[in-house]
Amino acid sequence: MKEIRFVQAINEALEEELSRDEKVYIIGEDVQAGTFGVSTGLVHKFGPERIMDTPLSETVIAGAAVGSAMTGYRPVAEFMFADFMYVAGDEIFAKAAKWRFIHGGTVELPLVFMASMGGYAKLGAEHSQSPESMFMHTPGLKLVVPSTPYDAKGLMKSAIRDNNPVVYLFHKRLLGLKGEIPEEEYVVPLGQADIKREGTDVTVVATGMMVQFALKVAEELKEKVSVEVIDPRTLEPLDIDTIIESVKKTGRAIVVDEDTKRCGVASEIMAQIMELAFDYLDAPIQRIAAANYPIPGGFMEDYVLPQTKDIKAAIEAIAD
């Protein structure tokens, strides 16, 4: 095992897959320098033809990825901030997501759309969003939201090898997080949840940064409540079985989601728990998510995004 930061984990995954398959290439704004460091340095080994810098042209970044994927390439398109993916809405939501389906399976779209997500950096409304629900909502897209360096690397490798469009969102505040990964090669399959902490009283389902929040709170409360933290790791495909199994054991569930509360990821996971495990619930499911506002900048951000104290209060209340 070796200790590695989240950002290096992604970089290693990209490097390994670029070496493994010459059809893999990266395209985006300033990917050679690497705005967040995830693709930094790769151009030295793979050259500018495979680490392609583009101007500010999100529709073309997405279109280039989708178009070239149809002809046998495996592009990783980088959007810097997930917020900027909205600019390429048609290419992502209509072309990448639908084109295999509407063309009767005659084409395949093996590509990754990669971007930073999330808040807690006070970057304001257009650099802080967690748009998972929009991608999870759209049939045809897969969605990866890693919470640890181990998962970040293993999931990126699976995302690149997958024959479908995969949206891969890394939390900008997790990039410095350290964690252990094996020296040897490994992958983390899409669609397999991970129990980040075992417990018996309350199930907390979370992804990305919220997993780290939940683990912190679970540790703080360990004398009072035994919290099980489940990280689905991929929201499509969603490993609902692991979540349901946990809920059947604990009888109590809280879903934590950095995305906006209304029609968010938490809403969907709650609904599925209701459909599949209603008889096992000892209390109403709780949902901790961002308030139904745009994400403000400055000090106001703290009043909109979910905080550890909110998770703590919810666990204490439901376990009571």
Partner: peptide
């Protein structure tokens, strides 16, 4: 949508 998508096909053709 012809524009970004065809750009992708053109890029693939060149590659």
């Amino acid at each position: 949508s012809v524009f970004p998508m065809s750009l992708g096909w053109g890029l693939a053709a060149k590659k």
